[in-house]
């Protein structure tokens, strides 16, 4: 029997507030190495807050965050990230005053175990569109190009876990397809991913495990097949 892959990130009993508003109500959520997990739910249910809590951008008032087994509940974001996590936030986080090339150069570093699989050349080969725009300022890119840049920049940190919040929001269908294609490739290379998106069918095909959040709680955490054959759960909690 082979041991289960290492747990990369684990949140336990997370309660997070924004001011007086209680957003997460005791969330348990974890990802193992190599695992693709989708996080579904309507807007405002706490998906982004959960991701931001795991990364230390907001502090949980109760509960713990462990990264690779180490307690990181109070750790700075940069320390959590350097344990091999990359984050593509909702809105993409492109820097207005940096060129495409600078975005890639500033992010590049070896991974947690010293791996250097993702180089600027490889990212440009995966996103040929970016190589035509190397000297453009970040904000002069289209939404699709920005998302490609955000993913490419994340890959250059040679992560073991890639977190994609709203992976294809606001993108044209053709661009979406390209993004999904690349996400699929990333999965094949063995990088674990947490994906938030509205395209339930794509997510269920792509993921190893599905989770659904409703009002700050995880209401489903299990395999994708069960969910695919339970339209009532999807209807009630995700709304399709």
């Amino acid at each position: 029997m082979t041991a289960a892959p290492e747990v990369l990130v684990a949140g336990k009993g997370l309660h997070t507030y924004y001011g007086y508003s209680h957003v997460l109500h005791g969330v348990d959520f974890s990802v193992r190495a190599g695992e693709t997990v989708c996080l579904m739910g309507r807007n405002g249910m706490g998906k982004t807050t959960l991701l931001r809590t795991l990364l230390g951008h907001v502090r949980a008032r109760r509960g713990t965050v462990h990264v690779r087994g180490e307690d990181m509940t109070q750790a700075r974001t940069s320390r959590i990230i350097r344990k091999g996590i990359a984050y593509v936030p909702e809105g993409r986080g492109i820097f207005a005053n940096l060129t495409v090339r600078e975005h890639l150069v500033m992010a590049a570093r070896p991974g947690f175990d010293g791996r250097n699989e993702w180089t600027i050349e490889r990212v440009l080969a995966s996103f040929p569109r970016l190589s035509e725009r190397l000297t453009s300022q970040g904000t002069n890119l289209s939404g699709g190009e920005q998302q490609m840049l955000a993913i490419g920049r994340a890959l250059l940190t040679n992560p073991d876990l890639l977190i994609l919040d709203e992976a294809t929001e606001g993108l044209a269908p053709l661009i979406r397809q390209q993004i999904w294609f690349v996400v699929h490739d990333i999965k094949e290379t063995g990088i674990a991913t947490i994906i938030v998106d509205k395209n339930v069918d794509v997510l269920l095909d792509l993921s190893d495990r599905a989770t659904i959040m409703v009002k700050g709680e995880i209401v489903y955490d299990g395999d994708c097949d069960t969910l695919r054959h339970s339209p009532d759960i999807l209807n009630t909690h995700v709304g399709i």
Partner: peptide, 25 residues
């Protein structure tokens, strides 16, 4: 330099810079 890029990036989005593993503080 990379350092300079981090500094300039920090001007436009601090949180994203820390999300790339840079200790922005």
């Amino acid at each position: 330099t990379k350092l300079g890029m981090w500094i300039r990036a920090g001007a436009s989005n601090r949180e994203m810079v820390s999300s790339l593993g840079v200790d922005i503080n």
